[in-house]
Amino acid sequence: MDFFSFFKKKDSTSSKNVAKDRLKLVLVHDRVNCSSQVLEMLKTDIIKVISNYMEIDEEELDIQITQTQSEDKSGTVPVLYANIPIKSMRKVNQD
């Protein structure tokens, strides 16, 4: 055990990691070139379409752009992440 470790800041809160986390987040948005306004419009449209088929919990709805490992594992790619809780299905006339 390091005697001086009591005085050290925890690694996760070191300013370097703060910088890294902030950068990663800001670059996800930079790279897809998607403003929060566009994201809000997208959200409204998604709700509109899905509501035709099912009743959803709009309060708990979460739509954001994040990143994920690309399929060939060569790096990360942006993804549109949507978590949409369903309350109930609507009866859809299939004809």
């Binding site: 690694d11 070191s14 300013s15 370097k16 990691n17 910088a19």
Partner: peptide
């Protein structure tokens, strides 16, 4: 500063920029 954890090191920057 890198040693203290107060500056991004080469690995940190390459991880971000790929």
């Amino acid at each position: 500063m890198v040693k203290r954890g107060d500056m991004m090191a080469i690995d940190d920057v390459t991880e971000i920029l790929a």
